[in-house]
Simulated assay, not measured.
Amino acid sequence: MKRLLPLVLPLALAACSAPPQGEQPAQATTPPMVSTATAIDAKTLAANHWKLAEAHDAQGRALDALLVRADAPVQLDFADGRVSVSNTCNRMGGGYAVEGNQLKFGRFASTMMACVDPNLAALDQEVGKRFEGALTAETPDAATLKLTTATGDVLVFKGEPTAEMRYGGPGEKAFLEVAAETKPCSHPLIPDKQCLQVRELQYDDKGLKVGAPGEFQNFYADIEGYKHEPGVRNVLRVKRFKIANPPADAPNQAYVLDMVVESETVKK
């Protein structure tokens, strides 16, 4: 009997582990992959200014022709079913639509300025040919937009929140005329401060100036996106936002440049 024990024990174990008659043994399963990417939608796209941070082809080679302005990279802005492209030689834009994980672009229109820098002049064509038809889109996180063209080119954009997101509302549009020269102005925290000289203008629905503008006044706030050049008078279209609970001695409104409407060099 002692010689039979090694045989009986395996048989007993097999009998205990065998599945009931007619039942199939369970199969090992692989847990499903969970994507952490944020869904593409118009609201996500409109929440940021998207600046090109990286561009390479399907083989991983850098697309230097798209990265010619390190200080002002190609930028995409999405709003109301349209996308605008800036920091190229010309401003470009057209319609777009979100379909699943794809961004579908219509034919772009463009201004017709000439650029002296040949690399900048070629940038419009390099951008335009990559925004034709459908691009695969994904957002690995809320501040990254990755677009892949049909030929495998990969464009990675980093998002910067728009003024509407930062100030919690759409703001209001206003037109400001900025005089050619600044003037000294008193400021408790900034000795020898120079203030822009600004007055507000009014336009009707047809774009015609109405009313008589007032006198130029010291403008203590900053205009985000605007860099004043001495000797140049500008008319700016800005977005004006209310600032909730501003610090003491700080303005309760913020101004963000929308576009330069007029620009004129003033001779002294």
Rank of each mutant, 00 (worst) to 15 (best):
A150D: 10
R240E: 11
Y220L: 12
A150F: 07
V156R: 02
G128H: 07
K104P: 05
A79M: 14
V261Q: 12
C195M: 06
P161H: 01
L13V: 14
D124H: 07
G211R: 01
A121L: 02
V178C: 01
K268E: 07
P230C: 01
P161M: 01
E200F: 00
T111R: 14
D80L: 12
R199H: 04
G133M: 04
N48F: 12
M113G: 12
G133T: 02
V266S: 04
L52D: 06
E132M: 12
E138Y: 09
G207K: 07
T162W: 13
L63E: 08
Q253E: 11
P10Q: 08
D192V: 01
R69Y: 04
S186I: 02
L147T: 01
Y220Q: 09
I190A: 10
P247Y: 02
V85R: 08
P188W: 07
I243E: 07
A42E: 15
H49P: 01
E99F: 05
V83H: 10
E126I: 00
L13Q: 13
L13D: 12
F241G: 02
L189N: 11
A79T: 14
K2M: 11
L120N: 09
E177T: 03
T88P: 00
P25T: 14
K183Y: 05
G169M: 11
R91A: 08
